[in-house]
Amino acid sequence: MNVTSTNFERNFSPAATLCLLVTLLILTGCASTQTHKPTAEIDPDPLESANRVFYNINETLDRNFLKPVAQVYADHMPVFMRVGVTNFFANLSYANVILNSFLQGKVNDGMSDTMRFVLNSTLGIGGLVDVATDIGFVAHKEDFGQTLAKWGFARGAYLYIPIVQGPDSVRDVPDMATKQLLNPLTYITSIYLLPVTALNVINTRANLLDETNIRDEAALDPYAFTREAYLQQREFLIYDGQPPVEGYDTLFDEDVDGDSELIIE
């Protein structure tokens, strides 16, 4: 989960992160050898029992510590300052977007993303002001998990990684390393890093208050809700908001009246 991803940043040196990335890539490759069966046929969550334990740990920490702090922050921080903080951290992590636009062969997007980064880092006062969007260099959402998907890697198991990541999948794990390696904060040593990191975590969580409230409003089983929403959302992002529509209504063509061995207890 992005919320606390920066905790991770503090604990790994660039070299260690690079080693981790290579290892993860190899693991992803192994995990992906069974590739492309239609998603409906395979259980997306073979590690559900462990994932649920981690989910509950994360939720307990969030409910008791992070969420209340984020709520206070959201209630008292002026909107323009929150926007500035959000822009600043989004800009710092934007190199990951640039790289992955190019890795996916989206050259125009990659050029536009580079311009965006340069403009916002300079005219936008170190990223505090998003001047690039108005000029026409809109933000894209790319990451290494999406790149691996484009390259044909299968998703692998759904994972819930508490504190540093949240919902994830085997294919999305290496992105934890690329975004780490490409974030300038990784290479800075300063006593100011701790408050800066805390600000990022709290601000990110505050930006998500609406979304978590919606989840709480709608979900009967928040764990399953989060998992399904995550997996579907990732597909949407991989296809840049235009996923193939063929699979949308296959649910309606299944024979629900057919024989079934499942019995309601």
């Binding site: 919320v3 997007d109 809109v138 919902p167 929403a229 908001g241």
Partner: peptide, 20 residues
């Protein structure tokens, strides 16, 4: 920025070119 936990349900997707 990677989508986050509850992000998936109603999240804010940046306007892509395709949208435009």
């Amino acid at each position: 920025m990677k989508p986050t936990e509850s992000h998936r349900y109603i999240t804010r997707i940046w306007k892509t070119r395709l949208h435009g």
